[in-house]
């Protein structure tokens, strides 16, 4: 479970004042950014777990994981707001402030998508036909890989700039793979004679697209990140 950000007490604020000299302000911000990315990772991993439970028909565990995603997403939101405030209030990284805040804002779409996907599954409870289950599992696995590579790329952006491109390439690779699996899944759904109702075929298409959105969001953040990398490299 992601750690909730506690409001800073007067005592802590006092310690912060002293810490200004020793750079604890920057250390705190570094930690917050790391925590934020951990929350994003957590949302993505929990999404994988939740959907696995759903596909296995374990709805109780699915709902449990959904609630955990909700919590992690909320923590990510709080951390994001804290980071934004700290960067502006303490005049940190003035040169790359816009890039970092923009990056964090767009990265926030990833946990948002995770939350929305489980919410749609929970509300609509689509009937996943057994012949489509392996494709859904493969699609979920690939989307998780794309999102995971994205957070690795963002971590590298903060610490090891020269490593970012290798992760970004993987994000693009997995997004492309996700598109292919999504396409295959949708064709299977519409060509199959097992699904009798047109509405259920549409339902399968809709959920394939929903899950695939995770990889799409990862790719759009990756595109933004690649520009920031060029700006940051000396």
């Amino acid at each position: 479970m992601a750690r909730k950000q506690e409001p800073i007490s007067k005592q802590e604020a006092g310690r912060e004042g002293i810490g200004r000299v020793f750079g604890s302000r920057t250390k705190a911000l570094e930690m917050e950014i790391d925590q934020y990315l951990s929350c994003v990772d957590q949302c993505v991993l929990l999404l994988g777990e939740a959907l696995k439970k759903y596909l296995d028909g374990d709805l109780e565990r699915f709902e449990e994981k959904s609630r955990e995603i909700d919590e992690a997403e909320k923590s990510a939101d709080e951390l994001r707001r804290g980071i934004t405030h700290r960067i502006y209030a303490e005049m940190l990284i003035p040169d790359s402030r816009g890039d970092v805040l923009g990056l964090i804002e767009t990265t926030d779409n990833v946990p948002d998508v995770a939350k929305r996907v489980v919410s749609h599954f929970s509300i609509e409870q689509p009937e996943v036909y057994p012949f489509l289950k392996p494709d859904f599992e493969e699609l979920i696995e690939i989307c998780l890989k794309a999102a995971r590579e994205l957070t690795l790329a963002i971590r590298a952006f903060f610490r090891e700039l020269y490593r970012v491109s290798e992760h970004l390439e993987k994000v693009h690779f997995w997004e492309h793979q996700a598109d292919q699996v999504e396409d295959r899944l949708k064709r299977k759904a519409f060509e199959s004679t097992e699904i009798k109702q047109f509405s259920k075929r549409v339902h399968m298409r809709y959920f394939a697209e929903r899950i695939s959105l995770l990889a799409d969001e990862a790719e759009s953040v990756a595109d933004r990140l690649s520009i920031s990398v060029i700006k940051r490299s000396i």
């Binding site: 750079g23 920057t26 911000l29 570094e30 950014i33 940190l92 990284i93 040169d95 790359s96 970092v100 952006f157 903060f158 610490r159 090891e160 700039l161 020269y162 940051r232 000396i234």
Partner: peptide, 21 residues
Amino acid sequence: LFFVVRFALNRLSLHLIKLDR
């Protein structure tokens, strides 16, 4: 100097926030 600084930055792997300071 450009190469020295770039080598040092790649070697030290400083966090963006620390690098800023």
